[in-house]
Amino acid sequence: MAMVVTEPCFGCKYTDCVAVCPVDCFYEGASMLFIHPDECVDCGACIPECPPQAIFYHDDVPEKWHTYIELNREMSLTCPNITEQKTPLCDE
């Protein structure tokens, strides 16, 4: 089971979660972040750091966002790895 970034991240792209990730499993798309499911160690450190509450444990992803499970896998294979906090696309 891995963490999954879902729709609330779209257009925000806060990177507070990246700063606390012990394994650097976040990847940066143009409009949101993604988590590589095979690199994530399921520590959950990123969940409370996400201002829009967009990160869920795989088994806890709301039904309406289940497509984000596969999207995280696909996009983490093509997007660049992000390991440092950056300015978000939006303000809280």
Rank of each mutant, 00 (worst) to 15 (best):
E63T: 14
W65I: 02
P88C: 11
H66W: 13
H58Y: 13
Y68S: 04
E70I: 06
W65E: 04
I55H: 00
V61M: 04
D59L: 05
E70T: 08
T83Y: 12
D60T: 06
L71W: 06
E70A: 12
C79V: 07
R73T: 12
A54V: 03
E84T: 12
V61N: 03
T67A: 15
A54T: 02
N72C: 09
E92T: 15
R73K: 15
N72D: 11
S76M: 02
E70Q: 11
N81V: 13
A54R: 02
A54E: 04
I82S: 03
E70W: 03
E84G: 00
H66L: 14
I69R: 10
C50T: 02
H66G: 01
P51F: 14
Y57S: 03
N72W: 04
T83W: 13
Q53A: 12
E92N: 15
N72R: 03
R73S: 11
Q53H: 13
L89V: 05
I69S: 08
I82V: 11
W65C: 02
P88T: 10
D60S: 12
P51L: 09
D59W: 09
Y68D: 05
C50I: 01
T87C: 06
P88S: 15
P80Y: 10
P80E: 12
H58D: 10
D91Q: 08
E74D: 08
P51G: 09
I69M: 11
D59Y: 14
E92F: 15
Y57I: 03
M75W: 10
P51E: 12
H66P: 01
H66F: 08
H66N: 13
N81G: 01
N81S: 11
I69A: 05
L71Y: 06
N72T: 02
D60Q: 15
D60G: 06
P62A: 06
T67G: 06
I55S: 00
M75H: 08
E84H: 10
S76N: 01
E70G: 03
D59R: 08
P52Y: 15
T87M: 11
M75R: 05
I82E: 01
T78K: 15
I55C: 00
I55T: 00
E70M: 07
T83M: 10
K64P: 00
H58Q: 14
C90I: 04
I69D: 07
T67N: 10
C79S: 14
I82M: 05
E84D: 06
P52K: 13
T78Y: 04
E63V: 09
W65P: 00
L71H: 05
T87G: 02
T83F: 09
P52C: 13
I69K: 14
C50L: 02
K86T: 14
E74Y: 02
P52T: 12
Q53S: 14
D91K: 09
A54W: 01
I55P: 00
V61I: 05
T87Q: 11
E63C: 07
Y68I: 00
P80K: 10
I82R: 04
F56S: 04
P80N: 11
N81C: 10
F56P: 00
Y57A: 08
T87A: 12
E74C: 01
C79M: 14
Y68V: 00
L77W: 00
K64Y: 01
T67I: 11
K64S: 03
A54M: 00
C50V: 01
K86M: 09
T67S: 15
L77N: 05
V61L: 05
T87D: 10
W65T: 02
I69P: 03
E74N: 04
L77K: 08
T67L: 12
D91C: 04
L89W: 11
E70S: 06
P62D: 07
H58K: 13
